[in-house]
Amino acid sequence: MSATVSFLLDIKPVLGAFLCLAGAILAVVGTVGVLRFPDFYTRLHAASVTDTSALTLAILGMALMSPSWLVVFKLAAIWAFFFLTGPTSSHAVANAAHTAGLQPLIGAQARSGRGGRDHDGE
């Protein structure tokens, strides 16, 4: 029994570092999506990968590495804050773009690789 507990305590920081790395790699994946996708609205989807899964994985990893409960509380505060405000700022950007008249590419249009239509808001 105690051997199991000490094994878990041994593997905890390693697992934490691994989760951090996984989160960081997901952040790179989301960024690659942002660079590849053809117009603003589709890029928004790629960016939300970073906002949700990369953030969750990295914060879980840091929580596993943390030395005290105080640090875990701070991590939980950051996580909860991001999950409350992340969609709000995404929606704010999307709504502002839509109000300014930026038209999304629909269907097969998006795959043909043409860039998004310019708008006169700038």
């Binding site: 994946v29 999506g33 589709t42 939300s48 999304p104 590419l105 629909i106």
Partner: peptide, 23 residues
């Protein structure tokens, strides 16, 4: 969110863009 993430990650990494955006 985990389920949806998997779909979008696959879309980001696929060599050929097969997205089909819609309103």
């Amino acid at each position: 969110i985990v389920k949806a993430n998997w779909i979008v990650i696959k879309a980001c990494l696929r060599a050929e863009l097969d997205i089909n955006p819609a309103l």
